[in-house]
């Protein structure tokens, strides 16, 4: 009995060497792909950090490893002697990013819920219009906006940057949240209605808490989009409302006509810190939000 069972097994079983070779290659391939993507994505960031910590005399050093380390560049980034106002612009970016995100999320959640859950005529036409608005080139809006805001005296104010930013971020918010709400099970809402909730209560007490991962993911994407915005900020702001992206671009060093690369790199490193902290804090929720809806059951 034992021999009759064992003999076919041994004849059909592949040799250990062949098995390990065939099963190892997909894993190696995956890790190789991941490594290429990670290096491709992080190499500029790594170079920025290394240069940020490098002494100004070694700005053009080709040493890929951290060398001649100093913190002077970070100190110089916050100095106002050369006319740079990095700290103020950092605050401006935070204010503009936060307001843009909050407004876009409030409007986006309701719009996305309506588009995902409610049945009304022309629903997909609205989605098409939103898609069209998101495809509209921002550079085409700069001149009319500049003219309009000059006429009403809004140049160099927060609202001049927040309102156009909302119009850019809102389509993204609505699209991501619509996909998220659409994949949520209807039964949860129906159960809440059967238990006596109104439509509003079902939305507030059942749907919104369950949609938290998607909301966090969308909020972070919206904040990053507003935080990185450069085009409008470069033309619609002067001194008071200048954002950090514009401030870094016009950074001035101690010497005239000498680009302060190390200080710019230090400022760039500082600018990425809030985003990294935000993503690390909400990492679990972001992953849950990004993967939700990927598998349909």
């Amino acid at each position: 009995m034992a021999t009759s069972v064992q003999s076919p097994d041994t004849s059909t079983k592949p040799t250990p060497a062949r098995k390990s070779k065939s099963s190892a290659w997909p894993t190696v391939r995956t890790y190789l792909g991941v490594a290429i993507v990670v290096v491709w994505g992080l190499l500029p960031f790594y170079w920025m950090v290394v240069t940020a910590f490098r002494d100004v005399d070694y700005t053009y050093s080709k040493n890929p490893l951290p060398s001649n380390i100093t913190f002077d560049n970070f100190k110089a980034a916050f100095e106002t002697d050369a006319g740079n106002h990095f700290a103020r612009s950092l605050g401006n970016s935070l204010i503009i990013g936060a307001f843009t995100t909050v407004f876009a999320m409030i409007v986006g959640v309701f719009a996305a819920y309506a588009l995902a859950r409610l049945q009304f005529r022309g629903k997909y036409v609205v989605l098409g219009i939103i898609l069209g608005a998101s495809m509209f080139p921002g550079v085409a809006l700069v001149t009319p906006l500049f003219q309009l805001f000059t006429d009403i005296g809004w140049i160099d104010t927060y609202q001049a940057l927040i309102i156009p930013n909302i119009s850019f971020v809102l389509p993204l918010t609505i699209y991501v949240l619509t996909a998220f709400f659409r994949d949520m099970p209807w039964e949860l809402e129906e159960s809440a209605r059967i238990d006596g909730c109104t439509k509003g209560q079902a939305f507030r007490m059942v749907i919104l808490p369950l949609a938290a991962p998607g909301l966090f993911t969308t909020a972070i994407l919206a904040f990053i989009a507003a935080w990185n915005e450069y085009l409008l900020a470069s033309l619609l702001s002067k001194d008071n409302a200048r954002t950090v992206t514009v401030e870094i671009a016009r950074f001035q060093g101690a010497l005239p006509r000498v680009e302060p690369y190390t200080t710019v790199m230090a400022a760039g490193t500082i600018v990425t810190v809030p985003l990294i902290i935000l993503v690390l804090i909400l990492q679990k929720r972001i992953v849950a939000g990004l993967t939700a809806g990927g598998v349909k059951g």
Partner: peptide, 14 residues
């Protein structure tokens, strides 16, 4: 029909 509606919205906007 949904795709065509979306396309109509997109074209309508432009």
């Amino acid at each position: 029909s949904e795709h065509l509606e979306t396309l109509m919205g997109l074209l309508g906007f432009f």
